[in-house]
Nucleic acid binder design. Structure first.
Lengths: 343, 343
DNA sequence: TTGAAAGCGTTACCAA
DNA sequence: TTGGTAACGCTTTCAA
C-alpha cells in the first residue's frame, strides 16, 4: 500500500542544493568550520540537522585510503582474561578513533585466512594476534600492515611481541609458598594449547629444582582441562599420589577456582590442608575465599599492543616487550602445617 | 638508508597493465570468471597471485553503498553469557559474510551516541542492542537500519525484541524446589542494572505467593553485587535471618557459584543443608558440584537477533520473540531435609 | 569475450 | 570565503 521503499541516504550534493551552496562548502563546514563564514555555516548546519545528514564513511575511507581499523585475532572470546583485554583494547581504539575488528578465529585456519583477507582488503593498520602463533599465512602482508603478538613467539624479526612475565609470576608464587614452608608444590597445567600456558609450565619446571632446590617429581606436573570442573580431576590426581603436594599451582584462575571448590566440597580446608594459587588476577572480586594469584597488567599490555600497531614511534620497529606481573596474596595460601592424605 | 617508504597497494589498473588487459577484465576475472576466456583468466590470476593483489573493500563498499555490517551494542564484554552470545553472533556474521561491529558502550551514553553515529556513517544494516534500552538517541535512525533488542523492552512498535523466557525459567526452578519439599525459597537479586535481572526478580515475586502458594516474605528478596564474591554477603544475609531459607535462587550463575563456594567454605553442605540454583547455563563444565540452573538457548537467541536484522523475511516487521529455556538439574539442589541455623 | 567510460560520495586542489 | 573539478579504486553498462 503506502509501502515507501527505503529512501536513499542524503549526500553532500543534496545538502548543498538545499542550503544553496556547493558541495565543497558543505564539506568545509563539516571539516574546517573556521574557514567558512558565519551565515553559511549556520545555514548548512541547520539543513544537516534537519535532514539528519550523516556523511558516508565509506566514501571517506576510499578517499583517505584507510578504514582506520585494527584487527584483533583471538581464539576464544570466553576466556575471561582475554575478554577483559579485548574490552580494554576496545576502549583505546574508541578513544583514538580506530575501528576494532574482532576476528574470532576459533582455532580454525580457514576462518583465520578469511579474516586475514578481509583485513587486507580494508587496509587494516595492523593485527593484534592473541595467543596465536602467526604462521606462514601471514607471510604476504603488505609492508604497511603491522603485526604484534601477545604471548606468542618472542624472537621474530618480522613482528613485535608483548608477553606477560610468566616466569616472574610463577617465581613469585613459588617464593611465596616456599616462604610459607611448602616443599611439595605441584603444578596443574592446562591442556588447551595456549602458549601462555606453556610458558608458565616451563617456568615451573625450570624453577622447581633449580632456583628453589625442591625435589623434582615427574608426577607433580600434569595436564588438565582448562575449566572450573577440572578441579575434581586435579584434586583426585594429586591428592591420591603416594606423596601428595601441600600446595598446587594452577595454570590459571579458572582451574584454581575449580580446585578450591572441589577441595572444600570433599572437606579439605583451604589453606590449612592445601594451598592453592591461580594465575591471571582478573579482578578483586573473583572468588571466595580470595585467591592467591598473579595479576597480569592488562592495561599496560593493551596499551603496548595498541601502540605497537598504531603509534608510528613504536610501530616502525620490531619490539619484544615483557610486562611485569604482580603477586596478589589472598586467602588460599597458608603455612604448610601438616601432610594430608586422602583415603 | 635503504628505507623504502611503504609502497602503495596495487589497484586493478596496475594488475590490468601487467596482464595486458583492461581493468574491467580484471574485475570480471574476479567476480564473473565464467564470463572470461581461459587464457585471459589464467594470465590475470597468475598476476594477481604473484603480486598478492587484494581488491580494495572500501571501494567496493562505496560502490555497493553498503559496508555489509551489523553492530552489537553491549555494555560489558566480561559477562560470560553475553560473551558466549557475542561469539555465536560473530560466527553467524562470519558465515554470512557480514562484518560485526562490537560497540562496547560501558553504560556511557556519549560513547553510545558516538558508536551510533559511526554505525550510521557506514550504513550499518542494523543494530543488536544487548540488555540496553534503546533510548531517544535511536530516534533518527535511517529507515533502512533495523534495531533489535535482547532482554530489553518488549512492547515497542519501532523495533523488534528477543527475550529469554525468564518467567518460565524461574518457574521451573521453583517447581523443582517445591517438588523437593522446599517451602522457604529466597531470591538473591543482582543489583547491576541489567534488565534480564529485573525480569527474573519480577518472575520470582509473581510466582512465589501466587502460583506456588508459598509464604510471601519481604526479607527473602534482596539485592547483591553481580559477582562470585557476593556469595559471602548472600549467605550471611539469608542464613542469619530469624527464619532462614532452605533454598536460594540466585539471579545468575556467577552469584550462585559464589554462594556455593562460601557455603562450602563455612561448612554448609550443599545440597543437604542448603539448595542453590543459578541462571544462564553457560556450559556443562562450569562448576563443581554441577549447578542446578536454567539454560538459555543462546544459539537460538543469536539466530533470531541476527535474522531480525538481516533476513528480509523477518526484518521487514517488528517481532517480539520469547525464547524457551530449559532446566538443568545439577547437584546443588536436593530434598529440604532439615532447617539449618547459623550461629 | 573484451574494453571504454561513467559513477558511487567524499575531499582537496586551485582558481575566482 | 566560495565553487568547479579531479581523484580515490572499484563495478557495471554498453558498445565493439
Amino acid at each position: 500500500m503506502d509501502q515507501q521503499k527505503p529512501k536513499d541516504y542524503l549526500g553532500v550534493r543534496e545538502i548543498a542544493k538545499l542550503a544553496h551552496v556547493s558541495p565543497s562548502t558543505v564539506s568545509r563546514v563539516i571539516n574546517y568550520p573556521e574557514r567558512t563564514s558565519d551565515d553559511v555555516r549556520e545555514r548548512v548546519n541547520r539543513i544537516i540537522e534537519e535532514y539528519h545528514y550523516v556523511p558516508n564513511q565509506m566514501a571517506k575511507n576510499l578517499f583517505s585510503k584507510s578504514s582506520n581499523s585494527l584487527a584483533v585475532f583471538i581464539n576464544n572470546l570466553t576466556n575471561p582474561f582475554y575478554a577483559l583485554l579485548l574490552q580494554e583494547l576496545g576502549q583505546l581504539a574508541f578513544q583514538e578513533q580506530y575501528n576494532l575488528l574482532i576476528c574470532n578465529t576459533q582455532h580454525n585456519r580457514n576462518q583465520e585466512q578469511d579474516y586475514l583477507s578481509y583485513c587486507q582488503s580494508v587496509r587494516t593498520k595492523g593485527i593484534i594476534s592473541i595467543d596465536n602463533h602467526p604462521t606462514n599465512i601471514y607471510g604476504n602482508l603488505h609492508s604497511s600492515m603491522k603485526l604484534v603478538s601477545l604471548d606468542g613467539k618472542v624472537d621474530s624479526v618480522h613482528y613485535s611481541s608483548v608477553t606477560s612475565n610468566h616466569y616472574q609470576g610463577i617465581n613469585m608464587l613459588m617464593n611465596h609458598l616456599v616462604d610459607l614452608g611448602h616443599r611439595k608444590i605441584a603444578y596443574a597445567a592446562d591442556n588447551s594449547n595456549l602458549h601462555a600456558g606453556k610458558l608458565r609450565r616451563q617456568a615451573y619446571q625450570q624453577l622447581v629444582g633449580w632456583h628453589h632446590n625442591l625435589p623434582y617429581r615427574v608426577d607433580y606436573v600434569a595436564d588438565f582441562e582448562c575449566s572450573i570442573r577440572a578441579g575434581k580431576d586435579i584434586i583426585e590426581y594429586y591428592m591420591h599420589l603416594p606423596d601428595p603436594p601441600t600446595a598446587i599451582l594452577c595454570a590459571n584462575d579458572s582451574m584454581a577456582i575449580g580446585v578450591l571448590m572441589y577441595a572444600q566440597h570433599i572437606g579439605l580446608k583451604v589453606p590449612e590442608d592445601l594451598s592453592i594459587t591461580g594465575f591471571d588476577g582478573l579482578n578483586e572480586d573473583f572468588s571466595y575465599p580470595r585467591l592467591t594469584t598473579v595479576m597480569q597488567d592488562y592495561k599496560k599490555i593493551a596499551r603496548l599492543l595498541f601502540d605497537d600497531v598504531v603509534d608510528p614511534k613504536r610501530a616502525d620497529h620490531v619490539h619484544h616487550e615483557v610486562v611485569d606481573v604482580s603477586l596478589l596474596v589472598g586467602e588460599t595460601t597458608g603455612p604448610a602445617k601438616k601432610q594430608v592424605y586422602l583415603p
